[in-house]
Design a binder for these strands. Structure first.
Lengths: 318, 318
DNA sequence: TATAGCGTTTAGAGAACCTAAAGCCCATGC
DNA sequence: GCATGGGCTTTAGGTTCTCTAAACGCTATA
């Protein structure tokens, strides 16, 4: 704890503000206009401050006002102080003024889907600062600290406005190199592969793990419990990109890597799951212009994403 | 006029101050102690500010207070702003707090006598900032802007505390080089010299100019009106130091150059004048510690100066 | 000599600010 | 389990600041 700034002895702050304005204009009436008060009020505030500091701040001459040397010397610091105050105040009100948008999203979705697209939003709305907090908690929404949350779940968020963004499927993926050296052409080929497990902690019963996936396809002789496990979906995908094995990946998150050729999905067996990505926000936030803009934008992005997937799948015959 | 800082929209300043203190302590009660108010007052100020900015600033958790991201971000600017305010306020009150001493002196006396000695005062009182304004006006004393004036005059300053510092004499001086090439051993030798004139505008009838000086000594054949003229006594001395001629110099101002051998006074004819250097201050300022300290110091310096002159003159037989 | 501009003064109204006391919540400890 | 204490909040009411309105004084200008 810094002691130096504690117990600062400060003059009446409003008197300082009046003085700063009056010194800037060298004219009490114009200062009064700026502060939306009467000249008398400014005069009194200045006298108040002069009493406090025990010295005159202005030389009242017949030709007009002049600053005393002491006042002249103090003025730059004073102006800077009020500029900083205004700056701090502006930071506090940025969210309400439409200049800041605070998002929270699940870490994997943020990394693999949202962040790569956010630049487009920022180009469309350069006046908005986007603050993104990646995390699993939803509590921030009720405290008002966060404007919009993007969550992976069943879409049940009582008391909040929810709209479904993108559905999810899981699909086995691996790196092209691995596919070249150790082809995966049928589910049975999995016997010769390391299985990468998504251990992210969402309670989606419909989302198959390797054990369920193998059982559903009648694959025998493969232990669906073995292999490395990652607590974030994006890490499983990274591991697959790095050729460490075959991941049963969330396709929304893996799509960018599939598009870029860092991953392949030779089996082309996508399994739909119940959970989906949803945008959630408190009703009151819906009035903020930056929130409206973001909701419009992300909805369009999601639709484009799903349309692109559909086109791909039709072409590939999934 | 900078427009950017006009019409700054600022939150209630006292609320900002309460917030800054509360954010620093993360504890309303301790902030209240610092501000010398009750915790309830702080709580209300914070709510006031939260209403103003339209968002929470603190997260009230069972474990204690936490800052919201926005508040956290704004805090450094806020702290700096209040530091600057305190700094500005300190500058305004420096004179009253004994940390600043404002002097005014005649320019020549300031340059030739005061400034060379001021370093000693500042060493004795390092906590005092000395502001020296060289000028001829005395008006500043009545406005309270200046603590002490040092003036050359007859010592009549109604309504002000006056004490006589140093008497004055005038004496012909020239540079040692000039004396070597064109000796000045009797007043009549002045016929072969350029006369340097002190045109400083003080109304001292007893202070001789060259015309009066020559007439008083019955010197003939020298035009006492010719030669360069300077509107400050110190400039006349500089001209003499530079070998441009013979100055009828104020000895108090010339003494340092005489001591240093930059000037010589071969005629050793000093003429006393009526005016003297006086320290003047408004009675009310006499209570300020820095004013008392300076008066003591300069009185002692003046006595030392006059004693040194006396010793010199006795040795030289003037 | 009239007029306009500008700072100052005054009384009184209004807003901001504070205190005191009670209330509430939660953690801690016996 | 229940008392205790720390800490924020709420409420009512009083105090202090701050503002306005209007009259005043002064100076410069027409």
């Amino acid at each position: 704890m810094e002691r130096n700034s504690e117990r600062r002895r400060l003059p009446p702050l409003n008197a300082l503000r009046a003085f700063e304005a009056a010194a800037r204009h060298l004219n009490f009436s114009r200062a009064a206009d700026e502060l939306s008060v009467t000249p008398g009020a400014v005069s009194q505030q200045i006298q108040n401050l002069e009493d406090y500091v025990g010295a005159a701040l202005f030389k009242r001459t017949p030709k007009g006002l002049l600053l005393t040397d002491a006042a002249q010397t103090a003025l730059p610091a004073l102006r800077e102080a009020f500029d900083r105050l205004a700056e701090a105040a502006s930071m506090l009100t940025a969210a309400v003024d439409g200049r800041r948008l605070t998002l929270t999203a699940a870490p994997s979705f943020a990394a693999k889907w949202l962040v790569p697209r956010l630049g487009k939003f920022e180009e469309l709305h350069p006046q908005v600062d986007v603050w993104l907090s990646a995390g699993l908690e939803l509590v921030d929404l009720s405290t008002g600290e966060v404007d919009i949350a993007i969550r992976y779940g069943a879409g049940r968020y009582p008391g909040l406005e929810v709209s479904r963004l993108i559905g999810e499927t899981v699909i086995p993926v691996l790196s092209p190199d691995l596919q070249a050296t150790n082809p995966l052409n049928t589910p049975a080929d999995l016997a010769g592969h390391v299985l990468l497990h998504d251990g992210s902690p969402e309670p989606d019963d419909s989302c198959p793990d390797w054990t369920m996936w193998l059982a559903a396809r009648g694959v025998r002789g493969v232990d669906g419990a073995r292999g490395p496990r990652f607590n974030q979906s994006s890490l499983v995908i990274e591991a697959a990109v790095n050729g460490r094995g075959v991941a049963l990946a969330k396709r929304t998150l893996a799509q960018a890597d599939l598009d870029a050729g860092r991953l392949v999905a030779p089996l082309q067996i996508a399994t739909a799951v119940d959970f989906a990505y949803c945008v959630v926000h408190p009703k009151a936030k819906g009035r903020l212009p930056q929130v409206k803009a973001f909701l419009n934008w992300i909805t369009a992005e999601a639709e484009a994403h799903e349309a692109a997937l559909l086109a791909l799948d039709n072409g590939a015959g999934i």
